Amino acid sequence: MTGRVDEMLIELDQALQHVSAPCTSADRADRIYEVYAFAQVIAAAAESGAMVVYEDADERPVKELIFRGAPGVLHGGRQFTHAVLSFGDARPVEVHVRVKVRGKVSRANPTS
């Protein structure tokens, strides 16, 4: 598994051109995979002509990425990085990693 993690880290560095991502082979494989998937989305968008800007939680541009250690809320006061993808006149799209999602349950789940 270590070999594949190292391969993902190399691809991660290539996909996130011009920024620093804080992942090492000592990080858990699931965390590295999440950042790897993030990087692949960014790379595909850039190859398709998107303008990519990395921002902190206060929407200021950054060059050094900070990813959450655990899932968190978007407006929780902790610093994190996300990407903003702009395709021409279309509305910008934000890409996040490790966001906590809450949903409403309209009915109780049945128990066995």
Rank of each mutant, 00 (worst) to 15 (best):
A46S: 14
E34Y: 05
R28E: 09
A15T: 10
Y36E: 08
Y36G: 06
G49M: 02
S20M: 10
A37Y: 05
S48V: 02
Y33Q: 13
A26L: 08
S48R: 06
S20V: 06
S20K: 10
D27I: 12
A39I: 00
E47C: 06
D27Y: 06
A46D: 07
S25F: 13
C23F: 13
H18N: 13
R28Y: 15
P22R: 06
R31Q: 12
T24L: 12
L16D: 07
Q40M: 08
A39K: 03
A43R: 08
A37T: 10
A39L: 00
G49C: 05
S48E: 03
A15Q: 09
F38E: 03
T24P: 02
T24Y: 11
A26F: 03
I42H: 01
A15W: 11
H18C: 14
R31G: 14
A39Y: 06
A29I: 15
I32F: 05
A15M: 10
I42Y: 00
L16P: 10
V41M: 11
E47N: 08
A29T: 09
A44L: 01
S20A: 12
A39Q: 09
L16F: 11
L16R: 05
E34K: 13
A45R: 01
S48G: 03
R28K: 14
F38V: 12
D30P: 10
A37V: 15
I32D: 06
A44E: 00
Q17H: 07
D27N: 10
A43L: 07
D27E: 10
I32N: 04
R28G: 13
A21N: 09
D27F: 12
S25A: 11
Y33P: 00
V35M: 15
L16A: 04
Y36C: 12
A43V: 03
T24F: 06
A43N: 06
R28W: 13
D30A: 14
S20R: 13
A45E: 02
E34A: 08
I32E: 07
A44F: 01
S48A: 05
R31P: 11
A43M: 05
A21R: 01
H18Q: 12
D30W: 09
S48T: 03
A45I: 02
